[in-house]
Amino acid sequence: MGNFLTSSSIGKKFVMSISGCFLLLFLIFHMVMNATAVISPEAYNVICAFLGANWYAVAGTAVLALGVLVHFLYALILTFQNWKARGGVKRYAVTKKEDSVSWSSKNMFVLGCIIVVGLIVHLYNFWYNMMFVELVGQHQNAMGFAPTDGASLIMYHFASIVWVIVYLVWFVAIWFHLTHGMWSMMQTVGWNNKIWLKRLKVIANVLSTLIMLGFAVTVIVYYLKSVGFDFFGLISW
C-alpha cells in the first residue's frame, strides 16, 4: 500500500474525503444536539453535562480536533501544490467562469479559511467557557454560568444581534462548503457515475440546507426569545 495517502494526488484527496465525511457526521450530531436546546434548555443542559469533562468526551474532542487538523493541513498542501501545477505566478490574463461550474467548487479553500476563523471564535465562545472551564477544575465561567449550563451560554451570546449576524454568515460559508464537499467526497472515493452525479448533488444540497437550517434556527430562536417573542406559546420555556 505504501505511503500513497501522503504521496499520491488521489491518496491525498482520499484523506480529504474521509476526514470531510467524519466532520460532516459530527456536524449532523452537533445540529441535532443544538435542536434540543430549542425544544428544551433543560434537556440540552443534560447533554452538556453528559458531554462535559468526561474521558469519552475529551477523547472525542481530541479525535475531532485531529480530524479538523488533518482536513485543513491536507487542504493547505493540496492548494499549494495545485497553485504550483497551474503555473504559479504565470496565470491567464483573461479568465471566465464556465456556466456549469459552481462558485463553491472553485472557492473551497477560501470557504474553508472562513470556516476555520469562525471555528476559532466559536471554540472561544463555547468550548472555552464549557469543557475547558471544567477541565481546569473551575465551577463557573467568566459569565458566571456553570460549565454545564450551555443553554444560558447560548442565550448570553445570541441575545446580541452582532453575534447572530456573525454566526449566520459563518453558517452560509459552511453551507457553500458542504454543497460541493458532500458530492465531491463521493466522487473522490469513486462512488459516482453519470446517473448518480445529479442525485448526489441534490442530496448534498438538501442535506446541507437541512443541517445549516438546524443551526440557524437555534440562533434565531434564542435571539427572538431574548427580545421577548414567545412564538405564540409554541416555545414556552
Binding site: K13, E98, S105, G190
Partner: peptide, 29 residues
C-alpha cells in the same frame, strides 16, 4: 507536476469531446 482534482467540472465543460467526470470516479475507484 500536474495538480489534483477538486471536482469543479471545469474540465468536462471545456472538453471538445464532452468526456464525463464519471470517468474520474472510475479512475479513483
Amino acid at each position: 507536476g500536474f495538480g489534483s482534482c477538486t471536482n469543479t467540472q471545469a474540465c468536462e465543460s471545456q472538453c471538445p469531446k464532452l468526456i464525463s467526470i464519471s470517468h474520474i470516479a472510475r479512475l479513483n475507484r
